[in-house]
Design a protein around this nucleic acid. Structure first.
Length: 182
DNA sequence: GCGGCGATTCCCT
DNA sequence: GGGAATCGCCGCT
């Protein structure tokens, strides 16, 4: 498990994962965009308690929560404290770029949660697996990263919360962030 | 059981 | 900017 507090909240973990190194079976890069989903959060899958799909969100921190979205895509999360997780929305490809290009077949490799999952070959059987350096590896950055914040993408509830985080200056974002206000 | 609805992406206009 | 693709999950009848 990555070296972070197993009781860390999603809202703390999401910005902390910006700039982290994410490797899935030898392919990956640096995380540029995340979103926090909390336990008492109407937009979170965990809002109504444990179900077969979201059980990994209630499992140990530092493990993966992978779910199918729109019947087509997979999305990868890092579990925080029980009922909370961080959606990995984008990264800068570093390792295995050619493999990602073959899997994607288009220029946009990892800008968006579904794109990222396809480029990294995230699988539904990765659901619940630890980021322990086996199939999944997560390394937090050594230094604080310059952050962007904004509202989360693609949700219909709790849209006022600014729980989306990005790496300032990065070219690899799923969408631009709104103008930053102090 | 059943029906609506996504933490999305791509292609078209 | 708008709509289709696509299907498992979840809430409710």
């Amino acid at each position: 498990m990555p070296p972070f507090d197993p009781q860390i909240s999603a809202l703390e973990l999401a910005p902390a994962l910006i700039g982290a190194r994410l490797i899935v079976r030898g392919v990956g890069g640096l995380i540029t965009e995340t979103e926090a989903y909390a336990a008492d959060d109407p937009a979170s899958h965990s809002f109504r308690g444990p179900t077969p799909r979201n059980q990994a969100m209630f499992g140990p921190a530092g493990h993966a929560y992978v779910y199918r979205c729109y019947g087509i895509h997979l999305c990868l999360n890092v579990v925080a404290r029980p009922g909370e997780a961080v959606l990995i929305r984008a990264l800068t490809p570093l390792i295995g770029v050619e493999t990602m290009q073959e899997r994607r077949g288009r220029a946009r490799l990892c800008a968006g949660p579904g794109c990222l999952a396809q480029a990294l070959d995230v699988r539904i059987e990765d659901d619940g697996r630890p980021f322990d350096g086996g199939d999944l590896l997560l390394e937090l950055p050594n230094e604080a990263q310059p952050l962007l914040v904004g509202p989360r993408i693609g949700i219909s509830r709790a849209t006022d919360l600014r729980w989306r985080f990005g790496l300032a200056g990065s070219r690899d974002l799923s969408r631009p962030f709104p103008p930053q206000r102090p």
